[in-house]
Write a protein that binds this DNA or RNA. Sequence first.
RNA 1: GGCGCGGUAGCCAAGUGGUAAGGCAGAGGUCUGCAAAACCUUUAUUCGUGGGUUCGAUUCCCACCCGCGCCUCCA
Length: 465
Amino acid sequence: MAFKLYNSLSRRTEAFEPADGETVRMYSCGPTVYNYVHIGNLRTFAFQDILRRHLRQSGWKLRHVMNVTDVEDKIIAAAARKGVPIGDYTRQFVDAFFEDCRLLRLERPDEVPAATDHIPEMITLVKRIERAGHTYRNAGSTYFRIAGWERYGRLSRLEASGIKAGARVDADEYDKEDARDFVLWKAARDGEPSWQSPFGPGRPGWHLECSAMAMAYLGETFDIHTGGVDLQFPHHENEIAQSESATGRPFVRFWVHAEHLLVDGKKMAKSMGNFYTLRDLLDQGWSPDAIRYLLVATPYRKQLNFTFDGLRGAAKAIERLRNFGRRLDGTFAAPHSEASTGMFEAALAQYRSALDDDLNTAGALGAVFEYIRSAHAAMDQGAFGPRNAAEGRRLLAEFDAVFDVMEPASLERLASERIDELVRERAAARKARDFARADAIRNSLAESGVALRDTPNGTEWHYMD
RNA sequence: GGCGCGGUAGCCAAGUGGUAAGGCAGAGGUCUGCAAAACCUUUAUUCGUGGGUUCGAUUCCCACCCGCGCCUCCA
């Protein structure tokens, strides 16, 4: 079963494989570090994480690059307000971003270049675009001339007239020949960071940063470029214009866009009081695992409606997965069951084909849960032997290599010796029919994050997360 | 106005031209000292609305309504 991916460029789901048949070259638009990212941003990054894990699990090597935009209007303005250099201002948000990623178990891309470390590549790219005859200069800035690039609009399918109609002209952009033109190199202004260049002192335009860094690390044509739907226009459209006008080659084979997250069916906005960062949710006591699950359980091309009900459900769903995993770690005395093997094989096939179908995570989860229910039933009926248990573990391992929600977040935990001791005490109390004492122990363990389960073979315990 | 994405049970959500996965929540039961976990049973004659095509549509077509996004910085 081959991996199929929806390509925004063709607006169809296409069979995907890397151009060289071996290594997937992928670029993701990363954060602009002028503030803390919110859960909507994180939805896109979580999608990228699922994509990169699935690509690797499909047997390909992966070279994944994600930029960090650390010089840009909002950053400059905010740093100026605080009276600090932009590097000092952005550092805290870069650190916070990677901490969020770590908590959500988002794998770090192979390269995470910062725009300010790649100014020379950006200058070189502008020179190439200039040589190709697609630029003009005005008042110290260098612009890309859309009128000379007939393929403009292929990705976003926006008519020139539509763009013009909606365009508002920014005060400092009066120097453009056409409202659609965009800046490649912005003239330096007093008190703003700038770099020397053949076009005069200035700084790179936002769109330029991604093109230059993507090509620096991945070559002039690469396999996949990801980002949020809102980046499709103008950012990605402009990236294509810059890159292809400079190289004369296709820039990206697959453009992949993640839909937005809504909160209670509405756009997230600070003024609506429904704006959340990861830290906000953690401070309310939600576990990062549940948040990861929720972000990832809805297929990426569908708007995700974030609700606290959904978050509760995600936490419960994870518990169900983990309980099953724990049960699989027990001993299985029953004989091997071919029927159970059949369930396993069907579930694995269904799971894989769901992810292969443009990362249908909801379908993949359905396959896993269906298997879990039937496996529990088989165990209860004694139709689940040691080899069946090994199959179950294999399914969960493959599942968790992508979803990564089985292992509880690590907290400070009660030492297991101490727990064993309390469990023994409780057993003695129960035997003496001192249920008040037994329940007190159980309650205090629960408060310490330890759940008990009485079975015919004695009491088992596990850490809640 | 232009360009898109979506509307499936209380909530989230998969899916198909042939009669609705899965998760959460709810109800009853088994198990337990009570729980927890697990299991069993149960919860949409119906897939935004109205037409059309078809033997048959939730799935295809048309229109309309609603939500969200992009067209300006934005995941």
